[in-house]
Nucleic acid binder design. Sequence first.
RNA 1: GGAGGCGUGGUGUAGUGGUUAACAUAUGUGCCUGUCACGCACAAGAUCGCGGGUUCGAUUCCCGUCGCCUCCGCCA
Length: 584
Amino acid sequence: MKREFAGSLRATDVGRRVRLSGWVHRVRDHGGVMFFDLRDRSGLCQIVVSPQDAAAGTAARLRPEWVIAVEGTIRMRQEGARNAKIATGDVELCDVALEILSESDVPPVLPSAAEAPDEAVRLRYRFLDLRREEMQQNLALRHRVLQASRRHLDAAGFYELETPMLTRSTPEGSRDFLVPSRMQPGSFYALPQSPQLFKQLFMVAGFERYFQVVRCFRDEDLRADRQPEFTQIYIEMSFVGEEEVLGLAEGLTKALVAEAGWDLQLPLQRLTYQEAMARYGTDKPDLRVPLEIQDLANQAGAFDAPFIQTALAQGGVLRALRAPGGAQLSRKQWDELGREIERFGMKSVPYIALTQEGLRGSLAKAVRPEAQDALVQTLGLQTGDAAVIIAGEEERVSLALGVLRLSFADQFSLRQSGHRFLWVTDFPLMEWSEEEGRAVSRHHPFTHPHPADVDRLEAEPLAVRAQAYDLVLDGVEVAGGSIRIHERPLQERIFRLLGLSEQETKDKFGFLLEAFRYGAPPHGGIAFGFDRLVMLLAGVPSIRDVIAFPKTAKGSDLLTGAPSDVAQAQLDELRLRVQEEAKR
RNA sequence: GGAGGCGUGGUGUAGUGGUUAACAUAUGUGCCUGUCACGCACAAGAUCGCGGGUUCGAUUCCCGUCGCCUCCGCCA
């Protein structure tokens, strides 16, 4: 008899004889009649065994997570004994023949438990954790989104092509994971941070439309939304400009999020990088938070504070952020907020609060009494509100207010329901690196400058915009890309601006530059952070919840014990010696 | 690299400078014929992460260390 899925049985199946296989989810033994739930990938189904049944003896032995096969007849449950909480709750399986396929020790992670245990236990016993319904659903969603991306891109004429995992270490970007070469001792492969160079070679090679769902590796410290290996959907197209890439990405995004039941209205909202920074203090604004930064330059006269005038005179800005209900924050809470913006060189949060008794707060004394009403009106303060007002260098002021904006959103539960996508465009091409004492690419060195800004490359390199764009969802960057440089002279100018010598560029990117000598088409693309997107679609707080076998914050795999020591013979073969102080 | 939080039966938590470390759940045994987080009774189950210090006495206080989580730096 053909095996069927337990979760699919309905009242319309009553009377049928079926065969189910799966795990014992929960046992309810009444001494006489007993019930147990059989769980498979599709869900649960209740099975009834009566004392007179042949299966009664076997059934009495059953324990959670044993693997069984049953054959039985579907019948309607008695009136009043139906369970609306499960999909198969109207029916049950009776008159069963029962076979135990596999017994189970007492599991440390019980899939039927209401709450999941500590994450370290879950990771140690991931194979059990993955049996939990939440994880089953998360990975099922991941599968559906992945298949939708393949369907959509195939239909749009893209080839799914593969690129090497053992490749060459590239400069710029994050730290590489290295793989020693046995055949060439002392030389190393690197695992790819992205297939960036290869996908551009595919364009030179004339494939015109490429995509790949591919694992990427970056040896940097981890976060809730960062793993050392993660999956991205890379897309590259020839003979297109920014609009075509954004359009393709929007259509794809709509198709992907539909798998989670989201209905996306196109086209998506857009903001330039400059607008995003000015209004939200970040390049990935969470638009669910209904607060915007205000520019107070024309209100500077309302303050009797020399430092504000000085900041403006030095080319700085004066900007404010309303905190609805902020007047209730204690001194201690303001101090805590101050610690969040310490890294922008600010010791405390300058603010005013509008209370029943008038204006309060660290900046209240600096407000000229005659200007108070106008200021309150400009800021839109209601009694009970507060506003942070910061003067200083533009970027630091913006970033600080951006951090506070999210803090207020948390503290006062300001996030609106629903989900908000937007494009952030016109990123700066380069930014100054204090560490390296030179301009560095913000995206990567092959990013095409904005055509209108190319003339200013040498004169004002840091003011040049790039044809680079990010797709932001609820404050998370879920995709990013750019139009690439296909003109050799322009590429050489960029390298010069980045302070890379001809010899360096030849050493590092020689093969790509050489390829560009043989007729490179205009091209561009975008990459989706697949894990992050699925994380948001699943509504979970960490990408570990949508990755089957993730690593801990220290990069350990608690299930397999990786990374681990290796045999001395393996090291010898690779001509590697581990430094004494690194040994445990 | 830095900051913070956590670590107690299988699991989740409580708790205390002092005799037997508590509760829930899971486990075992018995009872129970319509439950669905079944119920009832009994039992078993802990090196209080590890090392050191303070103390007559440390699971508790201190120092170190290891692990897990979050954040900053880092992540073109």
